[in-house]
């Protein structure tokens, strides 16, 4: 976890939880490397999804992209939550 949040009173249990999370991610990467992925759309010559580690990367990129889209939209569409109540 590159971004350890500054939670006051971080106990050992929470630290263990973070470590377990990180371990799981490492394990996923490791196992995914050994698994053979079929290309879902081989008939169309698309085999990007058969590459090792495609889905971890896809998940990470999608997470980033969706959050960034949301935040960009938010700039324009953000209103105080009493917006409609002001009428």
């Amino acid at each position: 976890m590159s971004d350890e949040p500054k939670t006051p009173g971080t106990s050992n249990r929470v630290l263990i939880a973070w470590l377990v999370g990180a371990a799981v991610l490492v394990a996923i990467v490791a196992v995914d490397y050994t698994v053979h992925h079929h290309a879902h759309f081989a008939a169309d010559g698309i085999d990007v999804d058969a590459m090792p580690e495609f889905f971890p990367v896809f998940g990470l990129v999608c997470g980033f992209v969706l959050v960034l889209i949301s935040k960009t939209l938010s700039i324009a569409l953000k209103r105080k939550d009493t917006f409609y109540a002001d009428d």
Binding site: M1, L25, I28, D32, H38, G59, C62, F64, V67
Partner: peptide
């Protein structure tokens, strides 16, 4: 294969959340 697709995707979108936590 099914299981790994989901684990890989979900695990790392979760990572994306924590990386983006500041915003």
């Amino acid at each position: 294969e099914h299981v790994m697709v989901m684990l890989g995707m979900l695990g790392f979108s979760g990572l994306a959340f924590f990386l983006l936590l500041p915003i």
